[in-house]
Design a protein around this nucleic acid. Structure first.
Lengths: 130, 130
DNA sequence: GCTTGCCTTGACGCCAGCGGCAAGGTTTAG
DNA sequence: CTAAACCTTGCCGCTGGCGTCAAGGCAAGC
């Protein structure tokens, strides 16, 4: 399998695959003419990477999962390192949810106050002219 | 008030103030020697900018609030444009909260499965060696 | 006069995950 | 023979909000 086919099958670009390789995440043999030749297993690897990036992981966070797949596991998240990353990421997400919830509250009260102020200042104006 | 003093009083850097000015958010007179001279009112403006950026606004989002302050309002959020931005931002935050909540769920189940798998595969290992 | 501490503009660096272009080699079909 | 469709390496661009020099001018105390 050449890089174009892998890219299409994984739903990404050749540029991205070369980028992953440059960062040590995806491996490829080389054919006589220098073309990258991929094993079928790399497709799973690339999909794992993509799935994790979509969830907000960084490339470094993904490494243990890739290594886990390469170690022969059917799923990339069953190895200790992966689990550790999962825990850390879950904590990060929880922390961010908290912060974002607080921000939401602030925005909400600020919006409420602003509208109330407009009511006081200029009562004849309708709230939603629509 | 010179730029250094304003920076310190606003809890930011001179670089930041020049940046804001370059982007049309903060105004300054110039003294004979070319130094920026700030009005007292600019302190409130800078603090408003900082507060909004901390909440996740971009510089463009901040503009209406600054204009609102300049228009003589005691608070930057009572003008229609500001209210509109507040509404939009609130919607964005809500959307992001939803996504992040879904991500959290996925991470949680993935983590649960991974740990369960390790239990099945290697029951003698303790979960948290501590 | 010299140092110290302000201030000025200008320009590059940073982070992350690529996109996109340049300039070229290879293989296959017509 | 040539065009088309692959592939290669390399390098700049992008987004945002600044940090961090660099090189120099101005003010004030000793």
């Amino acid at each position: 399998m050449l890089i174009g086919e892998l890219a299409e099958r994984a739903g990404t670009s050749t540029r991205t695959l070369r980028y992953y390789e440059a960062h040590g995440l995806v491996h490829a043999e080389r054919s006589a003419n220098g073309y990258r030749v991929y094993d079928e297993a790399e497709l799973r690897v690339v999909r794992e990477i993509r799935a994790l990036l979509d969830v907000g992981f960084g490339l470094d966070d993904v490494r243990p999962f890739v290594a886990c797949l390469r170690a022969g596991n059917t799923s990339g998240d069953v190895c200790p390192d992966s689990v550790q990353v999962l825990r850390r990421k879950l904590a990060e997400v929880d922390a961010y949810l908290d912060r974002l919830g607080a921000v939401r509250e602030q925005l909400h009260t600020q919006l409420t106050h602003a509208i109330a102020h407009r009511e006081r200042t200029c009562p004849k104006r309708r709230q939603l002219p629509r």
